[in-house]
Structure formats: structure tokens, C-alpha cells
Amino acid sequence: MDLFGDLPEPTQVVTGKEPTQSPEESRGEKRKHDEGLEKEVTVEKNEEEKKVCKGQARLKAYVAARRGEREEMQDAHVLLPDMSSIVSSLPSQVSRLAYFAVFDGHGGARASRFAADHLHHTLVTKFPKGDVENLDKLIKKCLLDTFRQTDEDFLKKASSQKPAWKDGSTATCVLVVDDVLYVANLGDSRAVLCRSEHREDGGEKKCVTLALSKEHNPTIYEERMRIQRSGGTVRDGRVLGVLEVSRSIGDGQYKRCGVISTPDLRRCQLSASDRFVILACDGLFKVFSPEEAVKYVLNILEDTSVAVEKKEGQTEREAHHDAACQRLASEAVRRGCADNVTVILVSIEF
């Protein structure tokens, strides 16, 4: 299974259809154009370097957290628009590193808080350094190793307690390397991207919602099969009839039942067509579909008549994004979500 899937390129029209070209045709075509592609890659690389010199996407993150009807806030989040302060050195071809994450704890808040405190520090120690080739492959390995290490470190700490901690947490993390998003997620928290695309009929642009993450629950066939092969069972849509997610950080008592900490990874090149990213725990998506959440935010951003409170130092644009984030979280509670709700809105501006 390819854990490092690319999202559609910004210039493509999103149709939901997979390409029908056969593997043999693909290989033949690749051999036919190898020499030309080599030259094109060099040209594209030079063009890309020029774009970086002109300036990268400006990212600004906003967060809203609501406890809902829960006794305890078990969500945690991290906003690091500039990681340079904790990175000793970066690969020569990387000029910007940013990180945004949301963690939804269950069985307590210790796993989510541990992940929020430690995951990005572990990531920094494992991130490629110096002159490197095949940066994508190394970032993939870095993310996989980071999640594994974070899970192992928390489980070691949890098992040393008396009584042992039984907390677990989902994780949805967006690592921004220059203008590329690398999204790693476990469990049922999600990340979605709002992108403007040309209509197939050539009409005006429309905003589409692209999933940046993949949900992991034991009702999904592949997840259920892994759990059953490990000796676990799925009852009422839950692992052993208790745990709602099939991948997580922590949950030591379920690791022997096929619950793993291997994230799904996705990569997405940012473009001028991109508007914003929403990261949120399942509390939001219990009462909003991803498309509804994106539309709700767009309505606030595009309605200039909406009165918003500007905080000190905020521009009008920033105030609207902040208001959209806060109102989205509040609306989830108003719609009846009793769970904790955490929403991170990352605006994108070229």
C-alpha cells in the first residue's frame, strides 16, 4: 500500500476518476520520454527556484477550542508557523519549515498532551540535514519514524505509572516544507484543503474540498482485517467493542489487537488557487461534513458585510479568518456536538 499519495496537481480539474492507462503503456511512455524529461526536470527545478526567490505562500494559523459537554478538555494542538527556532540545520534546498497539528485524546488527556509536547521535537531530530537527494523519500521516513518513536516513548512512560495510563490520542499533523504540505494522520481527526478549480465546462472557478487525511476506524475493511489477523475483534464498530479508532498514539492495551501508530501520509503542492486548510478533531465532523465546514468558512470570508472584531494588530483579512475559525467551532457546539471541538484554520496567501 502506498502510504505517500499525492493529491491532484493544482492545474488539474478534480473529477474523482482514476487514470485508465495500463502499466505497460506507462512504462513504454516513460522509456520513450526519459531523455526529454531529464532536461525538463532541470528547467522546472530552475523555475521553481525562481518562484521561491519571489516569495512563498504566506501562512497564518488560527485556533478555536471548545470543551463542549465533556468534563475535561482532552484535545491538544500546536501552531508553529516558523520552526527555525528549534531546528539546528535544514537541507540546503529547504528555506521554510512550519508545523500545525491537532490531537484528540480519549481515556484521558495525557496521550494528546504528550504528543503535542513531543512529536514536533522528535520530528526535528529526525528531519533530513545537509545536502540530500530524494528529499520526499527522506521526509516520508522522517514522519513514519517520528510517529513510531512518539508512540513508543508515550507507551514506555504510560506503562511505568502505577496504575498504568490507558490514554490514547488521534493525530493529524501538517508539515509545511517551503510550499509543499506533508500531512500525517492517525485516527479520525481530519485535514481538508479549500482550492479553487476551473469548471469542466470552462465556466467560472469553483471552490472544491480536498481531503488531506484518511480516517482510521475499525469498520473500514482493511483496518478490520488487520485487527482480526492480530487476534482482536470488532464489535459495534469498535475494537473489542470499546475503542472507536484503529490507529492511535498510546492505547497500550490495544496494540496487541492490531491498533497501530503508522500514519497515512499525503503530499500536496500549494498554489495560488489554494485558500485555506482546516484541521479539526472529529467533534467538528460529527456535525459538519468537510464540504459544509469549508462552505461555512467561505461564507464568512467572502461576506464583507459580516461584522468581525479586530484584535490589536490584526488586518481586516486576519480578523475575518479568526472570526471564521471561532464561529465554526462554536457552531459545532450549537449544532449539538457534546464532544470537545478543536479547529485550526490555516490561511494561504500568495
Rank of each mutant, 00 (worst) to 15 (best):
Y62V: 12
C194N: 11
A319G: 11
V78M: 11
K205W: 10
T122G: 00
V183H: 00
D303T: 05
H33T: 12
G55F: 02
D131E: 14
C53Q: 05
L301V: 14
Q149Y: 00
R229A: 08
L3M: 07
Q269L: 13
I249G: 01
Q74C: 13
L193A: 14
I249Y: 02
S248H: 04
I348M: 06
L210P: 15
L79V: 05
K129S: 10
K126Q: 13
D104C: 03
Q228R: 12
S196Q: 15
E47G: 00
E152Y: 03
A307D: 10
S230N: 11
S159Y: 10
A323D: 08
H320Q: 12
E197C: 14
Y99H: 11
T146F: 02
G5N: 14
T20C: 08
L298Q: 13
A329K: 05
G187E: 08
T20V: 08
T150E: 01
D282E: 04
Y254M: 05
V277E: 11
E38F: 03
E316T: 12
D2S: 14
F288N: 06
V306F: 08
D322C: 07
D136H: 12
Y62I: 10
K166Q: 15
V87P: 04
S22K: 11
H198Y: 06
K162N: 15
V333G: 01
A338W: 00
V287W: 15
V245D: 01
Y296G: 09
I348L: 13
A211W: 11
V346E: 02
V177L: 00
T304Q: 13
S92I: 07
A280W: 01
V239L: 05
L80N: 04
T262V: 11
L193I: 15
V78T: 14
V297H: 06
L135V: 05
E302C: 12
E44P: 00
L186D: 00
R70E: 04
V132E: 12
E200F: 08
F4N: 03
L328H: 04
G36P: 09
Q253K: 08
R148W: 05
A116G: 14
A116T: 03
D188Y: 11
C325E: 09
S112L: 04
I278F: 09
K206R: 12
R27L: 15
L186Y: 00
S347G: 15
R267G: 00
V297G: 06
V78Q: 15
F100Q: 04
S330I: 01
E222R: 07
D82G: 09
V259F: 02
S196F: 06
D188G: 12
S26T: 13
D322H: 06
E38L: 10
Q93N: 08
F276G: 05
N185Q: 13
K311C: 13
H216G: 01
E44I: 03
F154D: 07
T342W: 02
R113E: 13
F350G: 05
H120E: 09
F147E: 03
K17W: 04
P91I: 10
V242H: 14
A319H: 09
E47H: 07
V94M: 09
D82V: 14
P290V: 12
R334V: 10
Y254H: 08
L301T: 06
A116Y: 02
L210F: 07
S95Q: 14
V234L: 05
V287S: 14
R96W: 03
E133C: 03
D264V: 00
F285L: 03
G313P: 06
R113Q: 15
F350M: 09
T146A: 10
D179P: 04
R31W: 07
V124N: 01
V192Q: 12
